[in-house]
């Protein structure tokens, strides 16, 4: 059995015939060839595969692509716009918040969602937000610092523009 699924991915409408059992992470990586999203533990523990569905961060290894039919999906590729990095990406760059980079796409999508909801999170709030995102080499200190960097620079930009 294949079924047709249509959804918006990073602002573009996509439509494909897939097996119902295809997980969103594989749909994104293999069907759409958006390999920025990483496929990690497969058990909704590590958080490397986090994408946003209708704005909410979710673990794409534990959701069927079919369940996203009619919804809006955003992957890590959506962060950079016209060559301009998102402040959260710049924060990870500035504060050396990635070493091997495997967890980075999930970390970026999870913390971008945090900042959209809470533009000035405390270190504790950042740690709670990424408690479902596992980093095995960089360490969390620089990641928390990167999110704070992004929060501070977004606030400064908003003040300038305001």
């Amino acid at each position: 059995m294949t079924i047709n699924v249509s959804m918006t991915v990073n602002g573009a409408q996509v439509s494909h015939d897939i097996e119902p059992r295809m997980l969103l992470v594989h749909f994104v990586r293999e069907t759409l060839e958006l390999t920025g999203t990483h496929w990690g533990c497969d058990t909704s523990n590590c958080g490397a595969c986090v994408v946003r569905i209708d704005g909410q961060p979710v673990k794409s290894c534990t959701i069927l692509a079919a369940m996203c039919d009619g919804h809006e999906v955003a992957t890590v590729e959506s962060l950079e716009v016209e060559g301009q990095l998102d402040p959260i990406q710049m924060g990870f760059h500035e504060r050396h918040a990635l070493q091997c980079g495997f967890c980075t796409p999930g970390m970026l999508m999870t913390t971008r969602a945090l900042l959209d909801e809470n533009p000035d999170p405390t270190d504790h709030e950042i740690r709670v937000a990424i408690s479902g995102a596992i980093c095995r080499c960089t360490g969390y200190k620089n990641i928390v610092s990167a999110v704070r960097w992004a929060a501070e620079h977004e606030a400064a930009t908003a003040n300038r523009e305001g």
Partner: peptide
Amino acid sequence: IADPVVRNR
């Protein structure tokens, strides 16, 4: 219960 991302689903 689990983590914030899992709690979204």
